[in-house]
């Protein structure tokens, strides 16, 4: 499956990474070669093979739905770029 300039721009948009046109052109080439390598997988016969998500085939362990964490908001917000009154600050979304 070949990769177009628009595919790279679409992925960059979905990944929320600003990408100039020149940069996107550079990635078209790189990503195209990586996908060409990934395309080798199409030759493998995987009929009837279940996908493997966890090497030990483990399933998610469940625990009782109880509060176990303490409130450490101030501690954790110390490394935030901008906070006020315990809230994270971002540019205004709704005018």
């Amino acid at each position: 499956m070949s990769l177009e300039h628009a595919d790279v721009q679409r992925a960059a948009h979905l990944a929320r990474i600003a990408l100039g046109d020149d940069e996107a052109s550079h990635y078209v080439d790189d990503l195209g070669r990586i996908l060409a390598m990934a395309d080798q997988l199409q030759a493998v016969d995987t009929k009837g093979v279940a996908p493997l998500a966890h090497p030990l085939d483990s399933t998610q362990r469940l625990r009782a739905d109880e509060v176990t964490e303490t409130d450490q908001r101030d501690h954790f917000q110390r490394c935030a770029p901008a906070v006020a009154d315990g809230l994270y600050l971002v540019p205004r979304v709704v005018e």
Binding site: D7, V8, A12, L14, A15, I17, L31, L35, A38
Partner: peptide, 10 residues
Amino acid sequence: KRRILIGTHT
């Protein structure tokens, strides 16, 4: 970025 873009695309 390269790997994020590949992963996002696939």
